[in-house]
Amino acid sequence: MKTLSKFGVLAVLGGSLFLSACAGEYYVSDQPADVVYERPAPPYDGAVWIEGDWVWSGGRYVHQHGYWVRPRAGRTYVYGRWEHNNRGYRWHRGHWHR
């Protein structure tokens, strides 16, 4: 039976972490606290509010405030959400859905 050296094990682990990062699957042990801020008034009639989102930056999740946009014809905005599993917490970004 072939065994991996310490270097081989590190290379395999590093490769799996690299693939997770490429797929956008970033996990943290604790879900960040909700961010509270005042929503500005809509800039025009019919504007749709997009709630703040979490983005992976500098090795951690960073919150980006929400914003107003024009609605997209035939689409509905699906808000982002936290998912928890045995690897930790992962953010699923919001998106427009048909």
Rank of each mutant, 00 (worst) to 15 (best):
R70V: 03
W54A: 05
Y27F: 14
H95E: 00
L10V: 02
A21Y: 04
V9T: 04
R87A: 15
H97L: 00
G94L: 07
Y67F: 11
I50Q: 12
A73E: 15
W82T: 12
Q64I: 14
Y61D: 08
P40I: 13
R75D: 08
R90L: 08
W68I: 06
H97R: 04
P40H: 13
P42F: 06
T76C: 07
H92P: 00
A23G: 01
W56M: 12
R87C: 10
D30I: 05
L10S: 09
G14S: 07
V48D: 12
P71Q: 01
S20T: 06
L17F: 10
P71G: 01
C22A: 02
W56C: 14
Y89W: 15
A33M: 07
W91T: 03
H95V: 01
G24F: 02
H84C: 03
G88W: 11
Y61E: 06
H95T: 01
N85K: 07
P71D: 01
A33T: 10
L19D: 08
H84N: 12
S29G: 00
Y44D: 13
Y67M: 04
G88L: 12
R75T: 10
G80T: 09
D45C: 09
T76I: 09
Y37L: 08
Y79A: 14
S16F: 11
G15P: 01
K6L: 10
H63Q: 03
V28Q: 04
D34A: 14
K6D: 04
G80H: 05
V36Q: 12
G80E: 08
G59Y: 15
P32W: 01
G88I: 11
V78F: 02
Q31P: 02
A73C: 03
W54S: 08
V69M: 02
V48S: 07
A33H: 07
R39V: 14
H95Q: 02
E83L: 15
G94W: 05
A73M: 07
H97Y: 00
G24W: 01
R93Y: 00
D45K: 15
A73L: 08
C22G: 06
H65Y: 10
L17V: 10
A23H: 02
C22T: 01
L13D: 03
H63C: 02
G88E: 11
M1F: 09
Y61A: 05
G46F: 14
R87S: 13
Q64T: 15
E38G: 08
F7P: 00
S20D: 11
E51L: 09
H92L: 11
M1C: 07
P40N: 09
S16T: 14
Y67A: 00
W82N: 10
G88S: 08
G66E: 04
R90S: 10
K2G: 06
R72G: 02
G58V: 11
G24N: 04
K6H: 06
L19I: 15
L19C: 08
Q64H: 15
G94D: 05
F18H: 00
G15N: 05
E51G: 13
A23D: 05
A73G: 07
A41I: 10
V69A: 02
Y26K: 06
G15T: 07
L4I: 03
V62M: 01
G88D: 11
L10P: 00
Y37W: 13
Y44E: 15
R87V: 09
A11V: 09
Y61L: 06
Y27G: 03
S57A: 15
L19A: 13
N86I: 14
K6M: 00
Y89L: 03
G8N: 07
P43Q: 08
K2R: 10
R72W: 09
